[in-house]
Computed example of a mutant assay.
Amino acid sequence: MSSCLNGSAEPARERLTAPGAWNAEADDVLVCRAVRQETHDVRTFVFGARTPQRFDYRPGQFLTFAFEIGGETIHRCYTISSAPTRPDVVSITVKRVEGGPVSNWLHDTMRPGKEVRALGPMGEFSCFDHPAKKYLFLSGGSGVTPMMSMSRTFHDLAEPRDVAFVHSARTPADIVFRTELELMAARDPGFRFIPICERDAPAERWHGFSGRISLPMLALAVPDFREREVFVCGPAPYMAGVRKMMADAGFDMARHHEESFNFEELSGAEQAAAEQAGEALDAQPTPAEVKTFRVEFSKTRRFVDCPENVTVLDAARKAGMRLPSSCTKGLCGTCKSKLVSGTVDMKHAGGIRQREIDAGMALLCCSKPTSDLVVDR
């Protein structure tokens, strides 16, 4: 026996005989176990529970993290890139984005042993919710992560599924999980990996599909794509292009599923969201009998008038305020904020714990004021 164990039980064995599933309501702390370099600007962060526990989730779901950065709590959602078939740890895979407050903090400071808080798993973007014999996974950039979780799951279970995985990247050097995906394709005749690159990498000339995904390219790579259940994830322009491409091809869009979290692109996303919020509010005249409340954002010292039938987030966006958010359904927790004073009517979908509500927290995307408010933002 190794002397470093001092006669104690093997730690790995203890973790593999975990008594139950990790429950964020009981203990929301995760410990970083490993950091793995995937590409020059993408890393995978592996987390485990503080005590031996296992993770129960559907491939494609996400976790909402509460990161303490610069004295501020920032909530971000990251899709799980690991597979539930390997339940003792859970992983997220993050691309470093220039100016991105969270991605840069993770790359620069997250190390084995460091603790973070998380909520979840959550989300309805999963192959388990849409069983099929044939799948088409379409991803762009960091959108590879949920597809990787699904692919790893089917591979581990040796499921007789026909999966075509088409991934778009800038260069060969930017293909995340390239070696593993190529190995899975070599071992499993039912799994095909089709990467598309916009251009060559400095150290590698690309000989595969080049440019951006198009209908002729897809028809050549996956001729039977109309017969498949389709999952799409990537940047907003990528998903919009794929959505139009599939609709133009006459695809049954009831079998088209998509998800995206563009947290590091808040400027453009917030501008579009502000326009949408304004249009929605302008299209819904406020009757005279509807009360309007005053919402104060204490940190920015901004004031917003918010009708009782409008969410605080929509009112703030219409006023031009930049507030982090993503799902707008009370699911992801990104817009979670402290109510210094006042009350709201909040109808959430699981993105906040009861103890947080009891402590005065609220999700602004699904909270309508029932009094004047002061929000710690």
Score class of each variant (00 low, 15 high):
K336G: 11
F293S: 07
L313Q: 01
S298Q: 06
C332E: 04
V304C: 12
C335V: 07
A359I: 02
F297S: 02
M346L: 09
A319W: 09
G333V: 09
S337I: 08
K336L: 14
R355D: 14
A283D: 14
G342I: 04
P285R: 11
A316L: 08
A283F: 01
A319T: 00
L339M: 12
C366P: 05
E308C: 07
L281K: 00
G333F: 06
L331G: 00
G351W: 02
D314N: 04
G320T: 05
Q284Y: 07
E296V: 13
F297E: 01
D282Q: 11
C306Y: 01
G320F: 11
A283G: 07
P307F: 04
T311K: 03
L364R: 02
G320R: 08
S298D: 10
T343F: 09
N309P: 00
N309M: 03
M321S: 01
R294N: 04
R301A: 14
P287L: 06
K336D: 10
F303H: 14
D314K: 13
Q354I: 06
F297W: 13
P307V: 00
P307I: 00
D358Q: 12
F303R: 14
S337Q: 13
V295H: 01
L323N: 02
V310S: 03
R353W: 04
G350M: 06
E289I: 06
A280C: 07
H348S: 14
S337M: 13
A288V: 13
A315V: 05
S298Y: 00
C365K: 01
F303W: 10
S298V: 14
A319L: 04
K338T: 09
H348P: 03
D305I: 00
P324E: 06
R353C: 02
K299A: 15
P287W: 12
S337D: 01
C365I: 04
M361Q: 13
P324D: 05
E356N: 05
L331C: 10
A288W: 04
T292E: 12
R355Q: 09
